[in-house]
Design a binder for these strands. Structure first.
Lengths: 343, 343
DNA sequence: TTGTACGCGTTATCAC
DNA sequence: GTGATAACGCGTACAA
């Protein structure tokens, strides 16, 4: 039971008295063989316990079926679920994924990309925010980004603006006296800025009293909790007796806010309405279910891969026509009304 | 700016008047060249914008530096965090990971393994439970499993038994009148069975009144919630007035229990103590922080990869000595006392 | 329908 | 210290 090496096409060829070419054809164009001979080869493969070697195939024809992914982390449910959905497209397209966790460090991520290129990936999916899209575009490689700055490359994003409109409108419909949006400072280039813009636009359009509270929430749960405690204090002091509609930029923070209120009052007080963003698991696992704007992660992932596959297929044509302009796909979010607004 | 193909060693060799061999040596054994010549080659590489091709290297020397991973899902935070930690070992060992999401379908996962073998992975990390370890062992490939049946292969597991002892002892120390363990039916072969055995052993050893409630919690949050509602009803009816210490098999379910109590009483009643398992994010994001048995996911992941690397290195030796017996590593969990037990 | 001959880009072996 | 040459295992014109 030693390390006897795997049989190759040559071995099969010898065994069957065919040529290597015919064995190759058996795999890539079986119809060109007689059924009889197909069977002979099939048997030989079993007999010698042949196992295919895709590395050799890659070297010969250049098609690796590898796609690289750079994702910031998997701690955040949004990212892990996105990765889950992306990896699951293997069933449909057969592409294998080489995954790197981005370190928010440009040079390290550039190193990752170099490594990926060395393995001859056919395309790249980027969720990390570190490297500007302009630089990505220069890689001359099919690329799709998800929910990040995307000026020079193809992308798939949630319609954050629409999501904010939905969330804010819901709060307005419940006759809140003051609408509040809590977010961290966000650059206008990233799609998530739409959550701020949407909130502002709808408030101003409908002449609603409103305020945006910007906080840097840090990197730990503790920090976020403290910052939201501060925010809540401001809110309760500034708007006593008013019905407060709070649109929080993500479910994790919405949940913290809810917990703070529950810990204080044992319930969510009547004069507080909360809407989160993402429809992450915490929004249902919270003490009472949180209304939220649901990102359709499965659809985003599928659109991203399909957009990438299109580009990769185009490249394989004899006369590829590169995209003139990057394609940006927008996925509409879904408003989910739950206990923090409906009572 | 057409698709002009990348320069190869041949091109560099021509350009520098060296041979391909020397170029190769520049990368793999630079000290064997004069510093002068190293510089000449370095310049040529920049001049021609050389990019390495690892596929060709693999074919020539057989070392792919690929490791396959089959993981059940990324929805469960335990798995996504584990994957996170595993992928992060790239910085230390340089292995690239090909990740597949297991479908709880044996044949599909066998297909995944076949594909991985075709890409000449050097090792395999299995978290999915679908394929028996005996079958895995027959692959003749370095393998490490994590937290699953592991009779015939190397593995890294949490010391579930010890975790249960710690959790149960904590409840006992708080003078609970009745100790309850809630779990789904579990096969004795899987490591998580230790949570049941540990609970039982310590209760019997200390002659503590106890009960195990087995439920199948289904696949949705709703189902789990209903089942835990039933369990809670049983408990409150069977043990009125008694101080109840409940050890739940995971944090997700512990959190549901906590929420049910909070929704009913607006607080966690004095006569209920709860301990979860995993130290997953929900245990801190819950309405009040849940005491839990913390799995050291980072350590598990690192041990797993290092155990795999050992095996893979052994294989590369001229005279490999295969393991006589699979190695099983055990990682001790850490008890975290939080608000659901300490008040 | 089948075979020949060569290429893919690197590494390993041996020679100098 | 350097070079020629043969692998590695498969795909693909081109020929038959």
């Amino acid at each position: 039971m030693a390390q006897k090496k795997n049989p190759t096409f040559s071995d099969i060829a010898q065994y069957t008295n065919f040529s290597k070419t015919t064995i190759s054809r058996y795999f890539n164009n079986p119809d060109s063989l007689t059924l009889e001979n197909q069977e002979i080869i099939a048997n030989a493969l079993k007999e010698l316990n042949y196992k295919e070697n895709k590395v050799a195939r890659i070297l010969a024809n250049g098609k690796t079926e590898f796609v690289g992914i750079i994702i910031p982390d998997l701690f955040n449910n949004y990212y892990s679920e996105m990765l889950n959905q992306i990896l699951s497209t293997y069933a449909e397209y057969g592409y294998k994924f080489l995954v790197f966790i981005g370190n928010e460090n440009g040079d390290i991520e550039r190193q990752y990309i170099k490594e990926l290129m060395a393995y001859k990936i056919e395309g790249l999916i980027i969720l990390s925010h570190t490297i500007p899209s302009k630089e990505l575009a220069e890689l001359q490689l099919p690329i799709v980004t998800i929910e990040r700055e995307d000026r020079y490359v193809c992308s798939v994003n949630t319609d954050n603006y629409m999501g904010a409109i939905q969330a804010t409108s819901l709060l307005a419909k419940h006759d809140c006296d003051i609408l509040i949006h809590i977010n961290s400072p966000t650059a206008p280039e990233v799609p998530a800025y739409g959550r701020i813009q949407g909130f502002l636009d709808i408030c101003e359009e409908k002449h609603l009293k409103h305020q945006i509270i910007y906080k840097s929430f840090g990197n730990t749960y503790e920090e976020a909790r403290n910052k939201l405690g501060e925010a809540l204090k401001e809110i309760s002091e500034n708007y006593p007796g008013l019905k407060k509609g709070i649109f929080v930029s993500n479910d994790t923070h919405a949940n913290i806010l809810l917990n703070l209120l529950f810990q204080k009052y044992g319930t969510l007080p009547e004069d507080y309405l909360i809407v989160g963003f993402d429809n992450s698991p915490i929004s249902t696992e919270s003490v009472i279910p949180i209304s939220t704007v649901g990102q359709q992660i499965d659809r985003i992932a599928h659109e991203a891969v399909s957009l990438l596959v299109e580009q990769m297929n185009e490249r394989k044509k004899r006369r590829p026509v590169p995209l003139k302009e990057p394609i940006h796909k927008i996925i509409t979010p879904v408003l989910l009304r739950r206990s923090t607004t409906e009572r």
